[in-house]
Amino acid sequence: MQLIVMNRIFIGLLAGCLVMGCTAKSGIKEKAMKNPQMLEAVSGLTVRNLEGKSVSLEALWAKRRVAIVFLRHFG
């Protein structure tokens, strides 16, 4: 049901955009590298692993390099 509603909303908005002649900005805009101080904001935060246990976020990159991807949602 949720899936059908989402698809209908999407198709409706798509049709509206086409009528209005909307266009997406082309290309992928890369952000400037952020200041390492930014990571102070994540100090003390935790995430949960698939067993439900809390894991320190900082520990993920303390001793290694990681590519950390924030997913929009699982779907």
Partner: peptide
């Protein structure tokens, strides 16, 4: 579009970090 699980309005991103606080 599949069955979503999580916050539909949240956007994502990617960071390469480490070792330590090096972005």
């Amino acid at each position: 579009q599949g069955r979503s699980a999580g916050d539909l309005w949240q956007q994502g991103g990617i960071f390469v970090i480490g070792p330590g606080n090096r972005i």
